[in-house]
Nucleic acid binder design. Structure first.
Lengths: 285, 285
DNA sequence: CTTATTATGAAACTTTTTTTCATTATATGG
DNA sequence: CCATATAATGAAAAAAAGTTTCATAATAAG
């Protein structure tokens, strides 16, 4: 069952005048109609209780009471997630504020990224990884860190993969790719010329390209066979701290976990062989 | 104002027979009384509407209606937070499930980390950064990636900092630290011997040590002047994918943002100077 | 044992929701 | 353009739910 608020939005499009006003205030500030009685509401909307009852029934509620309950429930759920969007970090924030807001921003970015990712694309990417001869990772700056993270994971699953730190080496690797290779190019902005060149070089050699980027319309994305999108996030007060890399890591987690799930027994065997640290320690510290 | 459910538990202890039964079912399954009318409820509890109204007023509600609303609200919030904890990723999960669960796990880990971090400690760490001659970063495996992330940030704020990839170089750097230097040692497990040695070496030279670790009781944590804790998280089905590095990055964001906020004007000037990419691109891709 | 205090539920009362139904507006077919 | 069918509306009655009152019963205090 879809949520009530979603149903309200759907319904709103083909609606008559009388209900329109009410529905709009419902969509904008659902909490404003929360405690109200049906009469109050009718008065405010210049309509009658009967009309309101009919409307909420069309929205799938049993009656006005049920409508109020459902609404209360949904408002509670949404309140928290709404709260997030409007928190900007300012110079005046205390450290408590910073802790709260930075975390919220990062969470928000994860939520948004989740909604952007299409299962089908993930599946195609996993299939590509499965049948590829080698996987090569490309990235610069923070995205290079994400690439290394994925590299460490793929290593453990015995996927043959390459990564180079400096761009010249990355470009050389791209030039050496073949048809049955995969290139994973990570660039938050999608604008970095160096990454575009690597992607183009990979394509020219017939290799497949997966891009992890915010910019699904960028030249990099167009060059790629598959795009795994991440949320576009703002800088935290221009400081260069941004949630994008956290979202990128989330995408990496998803891709890798999906890969492992499709190759479960083999991977589990590999993981057993690639333990590094002593008991109690973790795989990658 | 305390939550209603908490108030119910508090009140439950000194209560008379008539109400007892009702309150107990309220505590066990609050959602079971949600849609019910006051009469229904009275009948079930072998009591009268009047008694129930009196009771909910003692619980701090305006009346039965308000009670129902408050309850609906709390049940909604509670349900959400419960939902999260029990999501394990299994072999059978579809890709949709993986996307959802991996993201939830990462979010959960961020939330938990936020609760662990003490503003005072963050403040002390920032002060340490401010008065230090140099900052040196230590880490291995995934934690090295986090260290590099912080390195990139500190560079932009013109904090003099060092990082080495391999452990021998890290150890040499630790041996060269002086009294007015800071070492930031990142180790999720807190058990990695190499990191402990670096921390000890740093301390021996009189440098201050900040640890970013899950293990607040570990030898590493004991060696450190300040510990910035991250949530202890499970592996995602033993695959080596784990939320810890995301939480570590969140801690890095918090530390860095707090630092920038306390040195706002200077940092903003520096950020202006350290732009790398063209307009539309990001600072670190 | 008497009196004061408190707790209780039936019933009266108030408010709220739901349904009914006559009226009005809108659309359809000739 | 008109006649008719269909849909929408709100006043008012009916039903249901919530609140208050008050007489009574239970319990505690003197």
């Amino acid at each position: 069952m879809k949520g009530l608020l979603v149903r309200i939005e759907d319904y709103h499009e083909h609606v008559n005048d009388a209900e329109k006003k009410l529905l709009e205030s419902l969509m904008k500030r659902p909490e404003s109609v929360l405690g109200k009685s049906i009469q109050e509401l009718a008065k405010e909307a210049y309509t009658s209780p009967a009309t309101i009852v009919r409307m909420v029934k069309k929205l799938g509620c049993l009656g006005y009471k049920d409508f109020q309950n459902t609404l209360a429930y949904e408002v509670a759920l949404f309140k928290e997630s709404k709260e997030i969007a409007f928190q900007k970090i300012t110079k005046e924030d205390t450290i408590e504020d910073v802790i709260y807001k930075v975390t919220k921003k990062n969470i928000e970015s994860l939520e948004t990224t989740r909604k952007l990712i299409e299962p089908k694309i993930v599946l195609e990417c996993v299939k590509l990884l499965e049948k590829s001869r080698t996987v090569t990772l490309f990235g610069l700056g923070t995205s290079l860190l994400v690439a290394r993270d994925l590299y460490l994971k793929l290593l453990r699953a015995d996927v043959i993969c390459n990564i180079c730190d400096d761009w010249h080496a990355q470009l050389l690797t791209a030039k050496n790719l073949r048809e049955d290779d995969v290139a994973i190019v990570i660039s938050y902005s999608g604008l970095t010329e160096e990454m575009l060149v690597c992607a183009q070089e990979a394509k020219r050699n017939g290799a497949h390209v997966i891009a992890i980027t915010r910019a699904v319309d960028s030249r990099l994305a167009l060059e790629a066979d598959f795009v795994l999108p991440v949320a576009a996030t703002e800088l935290i007060h221009r400081s260069g701290a941004m949630s994008s890399r956290i979202s990128q890591l989330n995408v990496v987690d998803i891709l890798f976990t999906a890969y492992v799930n499709r190759n479960y027994d083999f991977c589990m065997g590999q993981f057993g062989r690639t333990h590094i640290y002593k008991k109690g320690g973790s795989e990658s510290d």
